[in-house]
């Protein structure tokens, strides 16, 4: 369903012609990305990172290391100070403001605090992604139904979002993120507000979504998750990103920075 290599279509602007070379490019490339909120404390110091299509990548690091900032730069809620971020070959750091909505239509975003509209029903909270695209009502109904089924909330569309449990709210948020069949799923501490069992369930959902071909960037500081379901790991600390391709839990000794991070944790 979500984003097989041949079906992905970057839609940075309405009516833009499909770029056939985009499918062969890495989905996300960070080139010497520099970002600082305070001049003496850069969050990222010339970060280089390549994320291929279909990868599952954990972003981790201590609080304040820049995990959320990195994701925000991808969906352009933050701008970079220097360098380039290429999304399917296009430098999204230099997108015009009016192109940002079209960039975000290619992404699904999940947050720690769910960001659901409490007064809306579960259906409305998920359907909003497709309403923005202007899809017909009938198609919206069927695709929202499918998305809710994937996250285990089939038949709950009429429930008010405000009365759901934390785990259910996060499932709705995930359904909203995947219903538009995004090329990449950005998850910013999606299990941060959930108890350990629910956190594993939610992580399992992300695994399922990843298996269907969607690229997943999963920011977390929960070591248990990193160890039990190992994937490529990017550790952010003191403005430097360290890439651990095999992730934790494979018996390989990560470099000194990982050890340092573990010690901090």
């Amino acid at each position: 369903m979500a984003g097989s290599a041949s079906s992905f279509r970057p839609a940075l602007r309405p009516g833009q012609r499909f770029d056939t070379t985009a499918a062969r490019r890495p989905i996300l490339v960070f080139e010497s990305v520099y970002k600082a909120f305070h001049a003496d404390q850069p969050v990222l110091r010339g970060m280089d990172l390549v994320i291929e299509r279909g990868e599952f990548v954990y972003i981790t690091g201590p609080s304040g290391a820049g995990k959320s900032t990195l994701l925000k730069m991808v969906y352009r809620a933050e701008t970079i100070d220097d360098g380039r971020i290429l999304f399917l070959g296009r430098d999204i750091a230099r997108l015009a403001d009016d192109s940002i909505p079209y960039l975000r239509r290619n992404m699904g975003i999940v947050f720690q605090d769910f960001k659901l509209v409490p007064g809306w029903s579960v259906f409305d909270n998920v359907a909003v992604t497709l309403e923005v695209l202007g899809l017909p009502k009938r198609l919206i109904r069927s695709r929202v139904g499918e998305a809710l089924e994937r996250v285990g909330l089939s038949g709950r569309g009429g429930d008010p979002a405000g009365v759901l449990s934390g785990g259910e709210k996060q499932r709705v948020a995930i359904a909203r993120a995947i219903v538009g069949e995004p090329a990449i799923l950005l998850a910013d501490e999606p299990t941060g507000n959930l108890d350990p069992q629910l956190a594993f369930d939610i992580q399992g959902l992300f695994e399922d979504i990843h298996e269907s071909g969607t690229t997943v960037l999963f920011a977390t500081h929960d070591r248990t998750l990193l160890e039990t379901r190992p994937h490529r790991l990017v550790i952010l600390d003191e403005g430097v990103a360290t890439d651990v391709p095999q992730g934790l839990g494979h018996g390989e000794e990560p470099d000194s920075r990982v050890v340092q991070f573990r010690a901090v944790k």
């Binding site: 239509r105 509209v117 909270n125 923005v132």
Partner: peptide
């Protein structure tokens, strides 16, 4: 929160 959600899912300012 509604506005934030709309913008995050790719709604234009006009929308």
């Amino acid at each position: 929160i509604e506005i934030e959600v709309l913008k995050l899912v790719g709604a234009t300012d006009q929308f």
